[in-house]
Nucleic acid binder design. Structure first.
Lengths: 194, 194
DNA sequence: CCTACTTCTTCACCTAGGTGAATGAAAAGA
DNA sequence: TCTTTTCATTCACCTAGGTGAAGAAGTAGG
């Protein structure tokens, strides 16, 4: 039995060990190499739940032909297209491994079974959703009132390792600008003028 | 016993009537007049949950001295500063009634009690958080890739009544721009040039 | 009824970010 | 190793949005 899952999950949410063990029993261990696609948006709803144990996953959309990074998942996070998962709508999100990664894959049907059989398990779902919500609202707040420079600094504080691991044009789209604009900002921060 | 609560909640989430009844028993009916403050950010964590039955609530932050509208709550929605509520951090959000409003006020302590006593009640919390998450990510997506005009049209589709009820400078800050820019956009949409 | 305040609009000007192209460096492949 | 592709940078130019000020219209209060 993997200790990683339990350790990471306990950092995230406070649930009894037995609940975690039952949960893990339904997960399938998987791995993906750098640049490998983990899930590709298609006509089917997203009906999985990925728990990242190692590596780095990137979720992105294609909007007007452009690759827009929606989120970077680090170990200990659940990767899911919640919109598609909850509404059973067509998924628009692609998930790729940015680094060699290891993750547990859960089936939505199993998750729903767990919700029914173990009402206490609802808590895991609630805390997961609440955490995802916090991160999303923080970004909304930043887009409403923080200029690019401030959003960049925030990301640098929250996940400095990203800047070593992810191409800058992905970070640019995550921040809502073009690669050239991010490059220009970095030049300005270095005191260069051009 | 109010039918409004049950009706609105059933539209939102699928839970048994008994659960709803137990829930409602812990709510305190309140009302607020137009422009009245419902909750003011202060040093204490936000430990309430408002369920709006009638009217319109606006949540906003003061960022660099500016009033930034975070969200407009319409009947059937739960209004809460989730960030403060979950992290027990100081609340930065103000809630005011934009129109004469009626709402149920719940105490966090009671909610937590319900979570403990009635594990099935966790489902209400999970679905609430999931719904809040969806709306937040939709906005992130728009800020990443949609220009002001598209964000404006989306809001117009989703909540046209807002435009009759809320001053435009509040809508502007919700969309992440200054009132003058929204005014300029509206002029452009009307085919005017200036 | 008149005044004061609020809200929206318009303007001239400025800055931030987008666009398209060119360059160079680094990484990947043959 | 040589070649090709990928990525970041820089540039000139353009457009979207911010700034500060002024004015018009509506609304609330005395």
């Amino acid at each position: 039995m993997s200790q990683t899952f339990r350790q990471l999950l306990k950092q995230l949410i406070d649930v009894p060990d037995e609940t975690i063990d039952v949960f893990e029993g339904y997960g399938v261990k998987k791995s993906a190499h750098k640049n490998e696609m983990v899930f590709a948006a298609d006509s089917a709803p997203f009906s999985k739940l990925f728990f990242l144990e190692k590596g780095l996953l990137r979720a992105y959309r294609i909007i007007d032909g452009e690759d827009i990074s929606f989120y970077f998942f680090t170990p200990g996070e659940f990767a899911v297209d919640y919109e598609s998962y909850l509404r059973e709508s067509t998924s628009q999100l692609f998930f790729e491994a940015v680094l060699d990664s290891a993750y547990l894959e859960f089936d939505k049907a199993d998750i729903n079974f767990l919700y029914q059989e173990y009402p206490k398990f609802e808590r895991v779902g609630r805390l997961m959703a609440e955490k995802a919500y916090l991160s999303a609202t923080e970004r909304v707040k930043q887009f409403q009132a923080a200029p690019l420079g401030a959003r960049y600094q925030k990301l640098l504080e929250r996940a400095p390792e990203l800047f070593q691991q992810v191409p800058q044009y992905h970070i640019a789209s995550y921040l809502g600008v073009k690669p050239q604009s991010l490059s220009r900002l970095r030049a300005k921060l270095l005191g260069k003028i051009y």
